[in-house]
Computed example of a mutant assay.
Amino acid sequence: MIPQLGASQSRLPQIRPHHFNVVVADLYCWGQMQMPFCFSGLVLLTLFATAGRYREMAVIALLSFIVKVAVKAIMTRWSGMAGILNSTALMHATTLIRTILYASGWSAAKPRAVQI
């Protein structure tokens, strides 16, 4: 036997399960924008860690965090939950672009000495 809902709960709007599926599928599509930037950024940040470029990694992480917070504050007002996913995608894109710009300035002739 199914318990009866109380009087306060019966006034809640009826939400169809199909609606949740549509919302989740829509957010999943927005979330897929992060993937190319995320994985390529991870590979390049691994390169930075291997080369001992920790200061550059810290600058990139700080810049990416500032971009994410600023864009999240703006985008969530316009597009709701999708704004959070868009800000994360832009954060990963910022990480990738800054990493490529830093790495393009490296000289292959002068490897950086690692201090222990």
Rank of each mutant, 00 (worst) to 15 (best):
residue 16 R to W: 06
residue 10 S to D: 10
residue 5 L to I: 09
residue 68 K to C: 11
residue 3 P to M: 02
residue 110 K to E: 13
residue 79 S to R: 15
residue 33 M to G: 02
residue 63 L to D: 15
residue 13 P to V: 04
residue 71 V to M: 09
residue 82 A to I: 00
residue 113 A to D: 11
residue 92 H to F: 15
residue 85 L to P: 04
residue 61 A to Y: 01
residue 109 A to P: 00
residue 107 S to M: 13
residue 50 T to A: 13
residue 93 A to N: 00
residue 80 G to A: 02
residue 7 A to C: 14
residue 1 M to A: 05
residue 91 M to K: 13
residue 59 V to K: 13
residue 83 G to E: 10
residue 8 S to W: 12
residue 80 G to R: 01
residue 26 D to H: 08
residue 88 T to S: 12
residue 92 H to K: 12
residue 7 A to L: 15
residue 65 F to R: 02
residue 16 R to Y: 08
residue 20 F to P: 01
residue 56 E to M: 06
residue 80 G to L: 00
residue 63 L to T: 08
residue 40 S to T: 13
residue 89 A to N: 02
residue 56 E to Y: 04
residue 12 L to R: 07
residue 6 G to F: 14
residue 105 G to V: 03
residue 107 S to T: 04
residue 66 I to T: 11
residue 71 V to T: 12
residue 36 P to K: 08
residue 39 F to G: 07
residue 67 V to L: 09
residue 108 A to D: 14
residue 39 F to M: 05
residue 103 A to L: 10
residue 115 Q to I: 12
residue 21 N to L: 14
residue 50 T to Q: 07
residue 59 V to H: 12
residue 98 R to Q: 09
residue 53 R to Q: 02
residue 94 T to S: 10
residue 2 I to F: 02
residue 16 R to I: 05
residue 4 Q to K: 15
residue 37 F to S: 00
residue 45 L to R: 11
residue 7 A to G: 14
residue 98 R to T: 14
residue 102 Y to M: 12
residue 3 P to D: 01
residue 17 P to N: 06
residue 50 T to H: 08
residue 65 F to K: 00
residue 45 L to Y: 11
residue 34 Q to G: 01
residue 63 L to R: 15
residue 58 A to S: 06
residue 52 G to T: 07
residue 70 A to C: 12
residue 24 V to G: 01
residue 87 S to G: 15
residue 7 A to Y: 13
residue 92 H to R: 11
